[in-house]
Design a protein around this nucleic acid. Structure first.
Lengths: 118, 118
DNA sequence: GCAACTGCTTACATTTAGGTAACTGCTTAC
DNA sequence: GTAAGCAGTTACCTAAATGTAAGCAGTTGC
C-alpha cells in the first residue's frame, strides 16, 4: 500500500501529529463524546444526562461536565428556583465538533459492519 | 442554544452513542492515531516509527502496533533476510479513517487558534 | 412522616495505561 | 573486539482513570 502523505517531510508528519494531539487532549476519553452527544440530543439535567449514558456514574459525569465546561463546549446554568435547577446546554463552540462526531459515527457504523461480516 | 438532534428519541441518542463508542474503542488512546499518521507518512521500520513520535517508548509502541494489526489497520511483514527486517505498512482499511483524522486535524488546528487568541 | 427525586461530593478500591530501564540475539561498521 | 543498530521483551513501578458505595441538603408526592 502506498503511503498517504508521500510528500511529507518529518516535520510535516510531526506537525500533523501535534495538531491531532491537541484535539485528542480535549475530546478523548471514554465519556466526553458520549456526553456531548447526549447534550446535543437535548438532555439538559444532570440526572437526565446520567440516565441517558449507560454505566456512567455521578462521579465521572460531574468531573467530565466540569472539563467540558472549562473547554467551553457546554454551558452550565443554575436557576435559583426552589429546588435549585441546573441545566447543561451545548455552546456554539461544541458545534465545531459536529464533523468530527459525524465521521466517528460513520466509521463506527462501517467498522461494526465489517466485524459482523466476518 | 438549540439542540443539534431535536428530533431524536432516546433510542436514537443511545444508538448514536454506541456507534461512536465502537469507533472510539478501536482508535482512542494517547498513541494510536499518532502511530497511524506516522505509518501513513511513510515510516515503516520499528525504530523509524519510534523516532518519529516524541516520547513514545518501545514497549508502548510494540503493544499499540499489535493492536492496530489485530484491527487490520496496519500490516506487519517480516523479511527473513539477515538481519531480519520488519516492515509496518498501512492497509487499505486504515484509509477509511482518513476523514476522521482530517477532521480531528482541522479541529485541533482551530482549537489551538482559539486558545492562542485569548 | 416516609420514600423518592435533585445535583452533586466524598472516601476508598481497583483497573488500566503508561513510564523506566535493562536486556536479548543477531549483524554490521570501525 | 567493541560499539552501535535492529526489533523487540521483561520486570517493576507510578499515576491516572474509573468503579463502588454511601451520604447530604433540600423538595415533592402520597
Amino acid at each position: 500500500m502506498a503511503e498517504k502523505f508521500p510528500e511529507s517531510t518529518k516535520n510535516e508528519c510531526l506537525a500533523r501529529m501535534l495538531t491531532v494531539r491537541d484535539a485528542l487532549d480535549v475530546i478523548s476519553g471514554k465519556w466526553k463524546i458520549l456526553i456531548i452527544i447526549s447534550i446535543m440530543s437535548g438532555n439538559k439535567r444532570f440526572r437526565e444526562i446520567e440516565r441517558s449514558i449507560p454505566k456512567i456514574s455521578s462521579k465521572v459525569l460531574a468531573k467530565e461536565l466540569k472539563d467540558l465546561e472549562e473547554h467551553q463546549l457546554i454551558k452550565r446554568r443554575v436557576y435559583d428556583e426552589s429546588p435549585v435547577l441546573v441545566e447543561y446546554t451545548a455552546t456554539d463552540y461544541v458545534f465545531t465538533l459536529e464533523k468530527v462526531i459525524e465521521e466517528l459515527h460513520n466509521w463506527g457504523a462501517n467498522h461494526r459492519k465489517k466485524i459482523l461480516e466476518k
